[in-house]
């Protein structure tokens, strides 16, 4: 498969995530859209790793393996981020009984 298709698929998923962050007010849905963007980037990294292996694999059998390790570390960091972020959102819900992000604009006072 030409790499173009993967680039356009990932860009589309990323932009859907951006539009979701901009249009929703539910804090957890915004968080889920961030996860969607992370996954779009992961997909592109794996596609690029296979592209590099296709181009250089004959001379270097390990070509492109770094990208897959990076995807693994992105997943590790995302798991830690989700646990802390959800704890913050639960705390916010406990204090305000709402998960509306507009409710937090009183933080500026």
């Amino acid at each position: 498969m030409p790499i173009n298709y993967y680039i356009f698929l990932s860009v589309t998923l990323f932009c859907i995530g951006v539009a979701g962050v901009l249009t929703r007010r539910n804090a957890i849905i915004i968080f889920m859209c961030v996860e969607l963007m992370l996954n779009a980037v992961n997909l592109l990294l794996v596609a690029f790793s296979k592209m590099q292996f296709h181009a250089l694999g004959a001379s270097r059998p390990q070509a492109g393996i770094d990208a897959q390790i990076f995807v693994f570390f992105i997943m590790v960091v995302a798991a830690a981020e989700v646990s802390v972020g959800l704890a913050v959102i639960v705390m916010m819900y406990r204090n305000t009984h709402s998960i509306d992000v507009n409710f937090l604009n009183r933080l500026k006072h």
């Binding site: 790499i3 790793s49 296979k50 592209m51 292996f53 296709h54 694999g57 390990q62 492109g64």
Partner: peptide, 13 residues
């Protein structure tokens, strides 16, 4: 990028 291809169903990395 027309000549660059993501290899599918093959490669063991």
């Amino acid at each position: 990028l027309k000549t660059q291809v993501a290899q599918m169903n093959n490669g063991d990395i």
